[in-house]
Amino acid sequence: MARLSRYREHRFFRPVLLALGLFLAGALFTAGKAAAESMESKALVISADKATLIKEGKEIFARGCSSCHGLNAEGAGAAPSLIGVGSASVDFQVGTGRMPMADMSQQAVRKPPVYDEYETAALAEYVASLAPGPKALTNEEIAWERDGNAASGGTLFRNNCAMCHNLAGQGGALTQGKYAPTLMGVEPRHIYEAMITGPQAMPVFGDKVITPAEKLDIIKWIKEVESEPSLGGATLGRVGPVTEGLLAWTLGLGALIGVAVWLTSKAR
C-alpha cells in the first residue's frame, strides 16, 4: 500500500489517471451502446409483426438492393433473381456481410454486416414474402451444442465439406480465382443456412441428403475444431505440409546453418 501511495505523488499520476478513466468510460459506453443496440434490434425483431417487417424490408430493399437485383427482386445481369431464395439466403448473405457486395468483379467476401439484425430480418421477411423458400434460423433454434455429435460430424464433414473447405475448415482454392472461405468464426446459423441455400459456388445440401440432425453434427465438429487448442504447438495455419516444409527449410535448416557458421568460426 505504501508503494502505491508513492506512485500517487508522481507528477504524471493525475494525467495518467484521467486518461485511463476517460478511456475506460469510453470503452464501457461503446460496448454498452453496441450491446444495447443489438438487444434493441433483437427486441424489435421479436416485437414487430410480420406485415411491418415486410413493409420496412421492402423499403430497405428499394434503397440498398434494387439497383442490382431489380425493383421487384427479379434479378438483372450478374445479380440473380431473389424470388424463391427464402429468408435463409438473405440472412446468410446479409448477415455475414457478403451482401451488399463491395464490387461486382470478385466473389462476395465475408465482412462486417452493413445492416443490423432488425434490418436484416426485415429484408429476409420481405424476400420470403415474394415466394416460399428455405427459412432463416436463429442461433437459439439450432441446438448444436446439445444435439450435435462431433465424431459423426467429422465423418460428414470429410465426405461433404473438406474437399473445398480443407480438412480443418481453413478454406481452399476453387477454379479461376474463386475460393471456399474459411469456416472459422462463422455463426452456427450461417453455417446451417449456407448448407440449405448453397450460396455462390457452394452446392445445396438438402435435408434429405444431410438430415437436420446431421447438420448439427457438422456444426458441432466445426466448432470443436475451431476451439481446439493447438495440441502440438504452433499450428502453422493448419494447411498441411506446405507450411511445414517452408519452416523446415527456413527456421530449421537456417538455424542449424547459423550454428554451423558459429561452430567453424575461429574464437578470439
Binding site: 461433404n160 445445396v204 438438402g206
Partner: peptide, 12 residues
C-alpha cells in the same frame, strides 16, 4: 434417395 430429395444445385 428420391429425386425430390435433391434441389436444383444440390449434390449428394
Amino acid at each position: 434417395i428420391k429425386p425430390g430429395d435433391l434441389e436444383v444445385g444440390a449434390v449428394a
